[in-house]
């Protein structure tokens, strides 16, 4: 399993691996928002937590179809399925690799992008914490969606259609926590809910993803 993780990370880092694409996309979204809503820093700082959460979510979505597609095309997925690794382990490692290459950089870059959107100083800690807690759920849910659509031609659009409704609770609690942080309110409830969703999806969803992937490999 560790071998699979290091292989996936290595592949992401090498040429054509797409590492950093999500980050660049995130930056572009953040850059485009002031063009859309105007440069007033008062308005920007008010919508910054929501924009940063949406940007992170979309950047995450962008790279989902790569989770299984390449392994499916070159036959590795068949070979992995017949290897000693349990399917649940494979999908968990895949989700973890996706989070390390997409989610974690987004979390680390978020304060910088917050600066661009004139996020108030009190907002940084809750924003980073909410992303740190929420992005693993995005990766795990996304892995489920990727497992559902692996092997489908033109699966990309369908993947978004399937995954985005599943992202609703995570987005609501994550953005709510970041927003409350900016406004200096208590963030305990959304924090607990967000952590609960993340723990729940990490614990349960890999079983669904594995079942779905097995069906798709038939």
């Amino acid at each position: 399993m560790i071998a699979l993780l290091t292989r996936d990370l290595k592949l992401a880092m090498r040429a054509g691996g797409g590492f950093g694409l999500g980050l660049a996309f995130f930056l572009i979204v953040v850059t485009l928002v002031p063009f859309g809503v105007g440069p007033q820093s008062g308005l920007l700082s008010k919508i910054a937590p929501g924009i940063l959460w949406l940007g992170a979510l979309l950047a995450c979505l962008l790279s989902l179809d790569r989770i299984f597609a390449l392994d499916w095309e070159d036959g590795s997925l068949d070979l992995l399925a017949t290897s000693p690794l349990p399917m649940e382990g494979i999908v968990t490692v895949k989700a973890l690799a996706h989070w390390l290459t997409t989610g974690l950089p987004l979390v680390l870059a978020a304060p910088l992008f917050g600066l661009l959107l004139s996020l108030p100083p009190t907002g940084y800690a809750p924003l980073v914490l909410s992303l740190l807690l929420g992005t693993p759920a995005l990766s795990v849910i996304g892995t489920f969606g990727a497992a559902l659509t692996v092997g489908l031609k033109r699966g990309g659009l369908l993947l978004s259609l399937l995954v985005l409704p599943l992202y609703v609770p995570t987005l609501i609690f994550g953005a709510e926590m970041a927003r409350r942080g900016v406004e200096g309110q208590d963030t305990t409830t959304p924090l607990l809910m967000l952590a609960g969703i993340t723990c729940g999806t990490i614990a349960l969803l890999p079983f669904a993803s594995a079942a779905v992937l097995k069906v798709n490999l038939r």
């Binding site: 290595k10 090498r14 054509g16 095309e73 070159d74 590795s76 068949d78 070979l79 017949t82």
Partner: peptide, 16 residues
């Protein structure tokens, strides 16, 4: 645990 399968595709990663 005693079987190993090799299909039409080789499962190789081009960048490795």
């Amino acid at each position: 645990e005693t079987m190993v399968y090799a299909g039409h595709a080789d499962g190789l990663k081009p960048t490795l």
